[in-house]
Write a protein that binds this DNA or RNA. Structure first.
Lengths: 191, 191
DNA sequence: GAGAATTTGGAACGATCGTTCAAATGGAAA
DNA sequence: TTTCCATTTGAACGATCGTTCCAAATTCTC
């Protein structure tokens, strides 16, 4: 083998994901992606068939890092009831080097209605957020920190709805008052 | 006056709004808008300076018809507590000739982070939804249908968060179960 | 050093983007 | 009938879109 490629695949995806996250699919051009990743057109097209394939890879990368690992870390470092509140807390906290909101939610609105494959992908990811809430509720009920009369499935779905609303608010205009009301509401939903 | 223009301004805006609502700002081209409205390029540009100005007009039209009049009609035909639930019910019900979700929410995610003027416009509209919830809660408290101990402001903000989440769900993938859980949650938030 | 493999950068493709403009159109006023 | 003028129309603008392709540059193995 003659030599290795210069760039790291993960770094490239991380940067591409960041660009899509910040601007959206349509508003991010291949020129933007070349500039953001530091990888040339030719190299990008040698790995991904087209812009859409690169976006799907970036979306899956987001789901793995900013959804799956993110929730797993929260679940590992918090008792179940606090884990739910910590998820809301983290989503509400502004980050220096991250765009507001959530790439999955942005994509759900921009592409899901018109792209079946991406829509199914996003839906699967959001169901896992719902599962995180449901599992945490059930675990908390076993631990006795949440009343056992609470319907875990319905509450998890309502929490997901509230969580998606929080993502909208934090991307558009994160007024502290409404963010606080949402977090407080999530807390009171757990009894 | 020589002669009248062929098209109705309101019809034109209605159709342009529909196109933006269905596809988003970036994905809707001027060609799409000419086709959707039946009005020629020249005529469009004689009324609106550019695509962005047309979008802003369409957004304001949406706010007037599908937010302001919509909420006013609900408030006029329902007692205050039921009015809140009716708003959730209407947002959850699929419509034949309307795209899913809400143009204001779509715009909040797509454009608010990068367009200050549009961001402020969207924010003002969403605050009026919040005000609708708050006023309805206060009216219901006076009427005795909602417990007077409920904090109207906080509850209205939490309801807005849940409502935005419902808009996301109904645009991306409106599973009946999660829509029902959100509606049920809104109901239980009113005591 | 020689050769091979792979990335790289830039040129260029046709298509479409938002936008402009000048000519064609057709009822109202004279 | 002639004049008028806002509207309509379609062609055309330069720019950028996503994408393709190729020659030059680079760095490994032999």
């Amino acid at each position: 083998m003659p030599w290795e490629k210069k760039y790291s695949d993960a770094d490239m995806l991380e940067r591409a994901m960041h660009a899509f996250w910040a601007r959206g699919y349509e508003a991010t051009s291949m020129r933007d992606l070349v500039e953001a990743t530091g990888v040339n057109r030719g190299s990008l097209y040698s790995v991904y068939a087209d812009k859409r394939a690169l976006f799907i890879a970036a979306l899956k990368y987001y789901d793995r890092v900013h959804r799956d690992r993110f929730l797993a870390r929260i679940a590992a470092t918090n008792p179940p009831k606090q884990a739910i509140l910590a998820a809301f807390e983290a989503a509400a906290a502004p980050s220096k080097d991250q765009p507001g909101g959530c790439l999955l939610v942005n994509t759900a609105l921009e592409l899901s209605p018109h792209d079946e494959e991406i829509g199914a992908l996003v839906d699967g990811c959001l169901r896992q957020v719902e599962a995180f809430f449901r599992d945490a509720i059930k675990a908390a009920q076993k631990a006795g920190t949440i009343h056992s009369g609470l319907d875990a499935q319905n509450t998890a779905q309502a929490l997901l709805g509230l969580f998606l609303g929080l993502r909208v608010v934090t991307r558009a205009n994160p007024r502290p008052a409404i963010v606080a009301s949402i977090k407080s509401q999530a807390e009171s939903m757990l009894g």
